[in-house]
Simulated assay, not measured.
Amino acid sequence: MTRATPYWISLALFLGTGVILYLMGRDLICPCGYVELWAGDAPPEQSSQHIADWYTPSHLLHGLLFYAALWLVAPRMPISWRFAIAMLVECGWELVENSAWVIERYRSVTVSFDYNGDSIVNALADIVAMVVGFALARVIPVWASVALVIGFELLTAYLIRDGLVLNVVMLLWPLDAILQWQQAG
């Protein structure tokens, strides 16, 4: 194996995720027929169908958090292999997130009653957001990573009444109090 091997593995994971999503029947782009760079005010049926949206920051946070977790559990592992592990987890999440079971779970226990899953373009952009977060975590101080996590969570909670933590809670342990708060927005 060469030093580049983990990066080739990461590229294969990225491309393979796109192929698997296609084989799962995911749309390449928004069924509306066009792609927007930013879809912050898109109608609900176009949620997660364009390149970036209000959930993109949560994927950037994945990168920050994966970097921190892998630094804690495997500090001597080469960064290239930690990156490949982060890619494996993120790509795996994109496949699980777009499975029929998770899409139906979002529809039944969150405010996302009309959630249709991600387009392939959105899912791959989410993975790129994780890569950006991972790369940022390598070069910014720990306090800045913590500030980004807290800042993005507060920003998305304020603007869309959702975020990484709320999304995980509502997916795994739905709480009526959170659902009612989200519906009030």
Score class of each variant (00 low, 15 high):
I79T: 14
W81P: 04
E153Y: 08
D41K: 12
L64W: 03
A123L: 09
P75F: 11
L72Q: 09
P141D: 11
E45C: 04
F83Y: 11
L179G: 04
L13M: 12
Q180N: 07
A144M: 12
A86E: 10
F66W: 15
N167Y: 00
G16M: 08
R138E: 14
I150Q: 01
S145D: 13
F66S: 04
T17R: 03
D176L: 08
W143I: 11
S47C: 09
P75H: 04
R82A: 10
Q46M: 10
N116D: 05
A157H: 12
S99D: 05
M130E: 06
A100Q: 13
V121Y: 04
H62Q: 08
R138M: 11
Q46S: 07
M24H: 03
I29Q: 03
W71G: 07
L124C: 02
V109Y: 09
S80P: 01
R107W: 11
S48W: 01
G163F: 03
V96I: 14
Q180D: 10
V89Y: 09
G117L: 03
T17K: 05
I127K: 00
V121S: 08
A157G: 06
W143A: 10
W8V: 13
A123G: 06
M130F: 09
V109K: 09
E94V: 05
V35P: 00
M130A: 13
I178V: 15
L23V: 14
L65S: 07
L136W: 06
Y115T: 01
L60F: 15
Q180S: 06
G151Q: 06
V35Q: 03
I9K: 02
A69C: 12
V168P: 00
W181Q: 07
T56H: 06
V89M: 13
G63E: 07
E94G: 06
N167W: 04
W93M: 03
V89C: 07
A39V: 13
C32E: 13
Y158H: 14
H50P: 01
G25N: 05
L159A: 15
A184Y: 02
L64F: 10
L124I: 02
V139M: 11
A184P: 09
Y106C: 05
G163K: 03
R76E: 13
L70Q: 07
Y158N: 08
I160K: 11
P141T: 02
W101A: 12
W143D: 07
E94K: 02
F83A: 04
M1T: 13
W71E: 12
A144G: 07
I20F: 08
Y34I: 00
